[in-house]
Amino acid sequence: MIKPIPMSPAAVSDQDLDFAATLLARADDLSLRKVERTELRLLASLARELLAGVERAGLKVAEITRKAGLAHGTFYRYFTDIEAATARLIEDFSAFVHEKIARARRGETGSRERVRSATLLYARLFRRNAGLMRCLLGLSNDGLSFTSSYQRLNRDWYGRVATAIARQRDDGTSPQDLLPAAYVLGGMIDDFLRQIYLRHDPTLAHLADDEEKIADLLTDLWCFGAYGKPSE
């Protein structure tokens, strides 16, 4: 496997972080089979509905196919129902988020630069895909088929985080003992971004357009929580 090349979060364009746009770009790839491109168009149309604020209960096959420029019956050649399509979409989106964050990591393992680069990219992803993040954070409790792969991605991610914290602390604490702390710190970030971009808390409204400030704040809290002091 080719190791992803780290990129500065600032160098990643908004277009690259827009999952629906990514799906549409792939759907235009003529090297793919027609059936693959049609499936991508359906998923992109579904993503656009969720990003536009349509609630899961309000999703309609007729709207998804119409906006994808496809016949109504085409949807059922690929998915049994809306729930199956949504689960597939969010599973793919989860992998997209993890891949983007992995590529954004910069600096030494456990360093403030490393934490901040990942946090900044995550904040940008969260903001530009808020409707999908709502589903990702909500569907993970629904017992749907994608939940196990989402949890596996999270376990792998937090395992790497715990290992980085242990390496930076260098006090004999094992990564396994630090795994709960990694989950707590990750949950802190998820909840803070949820308050800003999903619940639109008026107290935090001034931060909504300033991902750099969000990243600085969350990085400071992360480093204090992980190391008891700012990390260098």
Rank of each mutant, 00 (worst) to 15 (best):
R155K: 11
R127Q: 10
L132A: 06
S145G: 14
R127F: 04
R169D: 08
A162T: 09
D142R: 08
M133G: 02
Y158F: 15
S148I: 01
Q168D: 02
Q168I: 08
S145P: 08
G159Y: 00
L139E: 12
L137M: 13
S145E: 14
R152L: 12
R167D: 07
W157L: 05
N154Q: 13
G131V: 08
A164I: 01
R167K: 13
G131Q: 04
I165C: 08
S149V: 15
L136F: 15
S145D: 12
C135S: 14
S145N: 07
L137Y: 12
L139W: 04
M133F: 04
R152D: 09
A164N: 11
W157N: 11
R167L: 15
R127V: 09
T147P: 01
A166R: 03
Y158I: 02
S148L: 07
T163A: 15
Y158D: 10
A166T: 00
L139N: 05
R155L: 14
C135D: 12
Q168T: 15
Q168C: 09
Y150V: 08
Q151I: 14
C135T: 09
L144G: 07
A164E: 14
Q168G: 07
R128K: 12
C135W: 07
G159W: 00
S149W: 11
N129Q: 11
V161L: 14
R152S: 12
M133E: 12
S145K: 06
R152H: 08
N154I: 01
C135H: 04
S145C: 09
W157C: 08
R128I: 00
A130S: 14
W157I: 00
D170I: 14
S140R: 15
L153H: 10
L153T: 07
Y150I: 05
M133N: 14
R155A: 12
Y150K: 03
R134E: 09
F126D: 02
R167N: 06
N129E: 09
F146L: 05
T147Y: 02
L136M: 11
A164M: 05
F126M: 01
N154C: 08
S140Y: 07
N154F: 12
Q168S: 15
A130V: 10
Y150R: 07
R134Q: 08
V161Y: 13
R128H: 15
S145Y: 03
L153Q: 07
R152K: 12
R134V: 10
R160E: 07
S148P: 00
N129Y: 00
D142V: 03
R155F: 08
D156C: 04
Q151R: 12
R134S: 12
R127S: 11
D170F: 03
Y158G: 05
Q151T: 10
L139S: 10
G159Q: 04
R169Q: 11
L144S: 12
R128G: 05
R127A: 15
R152P: 03
R169L: 15
R134G: 13
